[in-house]
Design a protein around this nucleic acid. Structure first.
Lengths: 129, 129
DNA sequence: TAAACATATGAATACTTGCTCATATATAGT
DNA sequence: ACTATATATGAGCAAGTATTCATATGTTTA
């Protein structure tokens, strides 16, 4: 059974198109015109996906308080240095963190505090449940 | 090779513990005391994970503009009714959307507008990139 | 009651992802 | 130069996930 609904006609309600149904084309049209474009939404979702891992979220929270080296982050979370490095790489690629080398060590900081603003908003939502 | 770093002593710097290293125990201690607890961070990450899928993000954006039925969402995104239903289920379980039945149809709305505030914050970040 | 339709859902699948392990790179100290 | 240490990274694997397909549920209309 084909269950794809395709919008082809915006004039009336309850149109049959190739056996597929569009129930409220006017609403679809209105939403379509007001929504950010698909690419922008995709970028947004990608950011959330990166924030959607507890290890990465914890790292960002930690860095909000203080600049930290890889080793200390590993100690703080009782996780392997390797896994922390891998996740820092992801955060680095997403430009969420910056780093600074000092001898053998690499210190990471938040690229900007925007993430924390997002965290605070989200935190409120989680606590209203 | 064991690469876990464990914090056991907070008094001094550069302690060797069972061959594992903690470089800045004072910083670790400070961060530990200021960070939200692991459970809270986990909840936060779970919310972001749900927002981290483009289909779900698009659905939420669409519902911000208008109440919509499953069929129309499927049409709007040219996706199958099944996949939309599956994602709505996820959003329902996360209490991000509410629904209302009207005859054969089920209309979905945002549970609250908090998500949009988060979206707006995140959007800014994405556009500074 | 039967047919049509809107939605929900379980199973299967293709794809992604976060961790571990092993190893590479780079720097510091001896 | 050699060793120890701090970090980075590729490969492999186990777990998770988004979609499709098939089908079930519930509602409307003929």
């Amino acid at each position: 059974m084909d269950t794809n609904y395709v919008m082809k006609n915006l004039k009336t309600i309850d149109i049959e198109v190739c056996g597929q149904t569009v129930i409220h084309p006017d609403i679809i049209q209105q939403v379509k015109s007001k929504m950010p474009d698909q690419e922008a939404v995709k970028n947004l979702a990608e950011l959330f996906k990166i924030l959607g891992d507890p290890t990465r979220t914890r790292i960002l929270y930690a860095l909000y308080d203080s600049e930290m080296c890889v080793c200390d982050l590993a100690a703080l979370f009782s996780m392997s240095q390797s896994s922390i490095s891998h996740q820092l790489r992801v955060l680095k690629q997403a430009k969420l963190v910056k780093y600074r080398k000092e001898g053998k060590m690499v210190f990471y900081t938040l690229a900007d505090n925007h993430v924390i603003t997002i965290f605070e908003q989200a935190f409120q939502h989680v606590n209203e449940g």
